[in-house]
Amino acid sequence: MRKKIEYLLSNLNNKLEGNFLKMQEKSIAEYANKIVSNANIVPILEQDKLEAFIAFYDNDPKKEIAYLSMLAVDYGSLGKSYGKVLMETAINILRKKGFRYFDIDIDVDNSIAIDFAKRYGFKIMERGEKIRVRRVL
């Protein structure tokens, strides 16, 4: 799965001229390895090609807060409602596990992600270099 995630993220980053991923990790490969090792990943595969995935951290032993790390949809698969399916799936998984909150940190200039989160009931909690949004589960 790591190679498929790395390939999808690299394609998205290239298509968007390097503006898709703004991370502290040194490379897409390191980021892909990090989420495969530590996150819960829900993929959408078509004929063994990764079309989209959501990665979130649900390792809080108190089951208070889960964190969305990445939701990515292949550029050629936009408009197929994969983002909606993945967000709803993640929310349902977290509810079943008994989590109370689902948080996302979003770049302040990423209005598409902010609007997407708001459609799913996320509310702005903090503003700074990033915007923290939270959904009560």
Rank of each mutant, 00 (worst) to 15 (best):
S77Y: 08
S69E: 15
N110R: 08
K22Y: 12
L71A: 01
E126K: 12
F102Y: 08
G128F: 01
E6D: 06
A117E: 07
N59D: 15
I44C: 11
K80P: 07
E126H: 10
K80H: 15
G121C: 07
Y57G: 04
F122M: 09
D60W: 14
M87P: 10
G18F: 06
R2T: 07
L8M: 09
N13G: 01
V36R: 04
F102S: 03
N110D: 13
I112K: 14
A29P: 04
I44H: 12
K49H: 13
F56A: 08
K63A: 00
E129C: 03
K49D: 09
A52V: 02
K80S: 13
E51V: 01
I91Y: 03
A117W: 12
V85S: 07
S77W: 09
D60I: 06
F53Q: 02
D107G: 06
G76K: 12
N110K: 11
F20L: 00
S81L: 08
L9N: 05
D58T: 04
L8Q: 08
R100V: 07
N11D: 13
P61R: 12
N38I: 00
E51T: 10
F99V: 03
R119W: 01
V136P: 02
K49I: 05
R95E: 03
F20W: 08
I28G: 03
A29Y: 15
V36Y: 09
Y120D: 01
S81Q: 13
Y82S: 04
D105V: 04
L50H: 01
Q24F: 00
E88Y: 06
I131E: 08
E88I: 07
E17Y: 15
V85H: 12
E6C: 05
Y101V: 11
K130M: 14
L86M: 04
F122N: 00
F20G: 00
S69K: 11
D48V: 10
L71T: 02
I124P: 03
N92S: 10
G79C: 00
F116A: 08
M1W: 04
D60G: 00
F99T: 02
F20D: 03
V133A: 08
I112A: 14
N11L: 15
I106Q: 05
N11G: 05
L86F: 02
D58N: 12
D109R: 02
A117V: 11
K84D: 12
Q47W: 13
D115F: 12
P61D: 14
D60P: 05
K49L: 06
A32P: 10
M125Y: 02
N14H: 08
F122C: 11
L8R: 00
F56P: 07
L71G: 10
R127Q: 12
F56T: 08
Y7H: 03
V133T: 10
K49P: 00
R100M: 12
K22L: 09
R2N: 09
L94F: 10
D107W: 13
V42N: 01
M23G: 10
D58R: 03
D115L: 13
K34C: 11
A55S: 05
L8N: 03
I131M: 08
L45S: 02
A113I: 11
E46R: 01
I65F: 11
F116N: 11
F99N: 01
E64S: 05
D74W: 09
Y67C: 05
V85G: 04
D109A: 07
S10N: 14
E25F: 15
L78V: 11
A66V: 14
